[in-house]
């Protein structure tokens, strides 16, 4: 009678192997471009360190792919584990915020972003979200624009 060996394998996070393969592909691409800088022309060529770095990226990402291939997947999906709805929502409004900041200017875009994100994350109703957003924005503006003289993005939508 043989006893079943206890499994010590770590489980794989959903999408881990795909991510490792993507990094391997990125390494291959970087290696290709590093080689095209100056090839193996001399020890002190501009491409020598980029080629060495690309080599390290290739080898280490290959090791990661091999190690990940031998693991079992966790019983959850990529969506629930890595991109839950709240994260997708927050990432989307963050992306929208940085894309419109140039058009709407700092104050309007930051105000809208703060209101929407605090409303969704803090979940205490629109009046609280509005109050916190306005106060936060006022403090940030006074500290950075008026005291530290930091330049903030200005609206160019109406220009």
């Amino acid at each position: 009678m043989t006893s079943q060996p206890k499994s010590t394998k770590r489980t794989q996070i959903p999408g881990e192997l795909v991510f490792a393969c993507l990094l391997l592909s990125l390494s291959l691409l970087i290696a290709f471009y590093a080689l095209s800088i100056s090839g193996f022309s001399s020890m002190s060529s501009p491409g020598s360190i980029p080629m060495l770095a690309a080599l390290f990226m290739l080898v280490s990402s290959l090791i990661t792919v091999i190690k990940t291939t031998g693991t079992t997947t966790k019983n959850s999906t990529f969506i629930t584990r890595l991109t839950p709805p709240i994260l997708l929502f927050f990432a989307s409004i963050s992306l929208t915020y940085i894309l419109v900041i140039d058009q709407l200017g700092f104050l309007i875009s930051s105000g809208l972003f703060l209101f929407a994100s605090i409303l969704a994350l803090y979940r205490q109703g629109p009046s609280i979200a509005m109050l916190v957003s306005i106060n936060t924005l006022a403090i940030i503006y006074i500290i950075f624009r008026l005291i530290f003289k930091v330049i903030l993005p200005e609206a160019n939508l109406w220009e």
Binding site: Y97, S110, I151
Partner: peptide, 16 residues
């Protein structure tokens, strides 16, 4: 829920 959006705004201000 309040802190995280503020960090994003501060990061934007700092980067710009």
């Amino acid at each position: 829920g309040i802190l995280l959006p503020i960090i994003v705004v501060l990061s934007v201000v700092g980067t710009y």
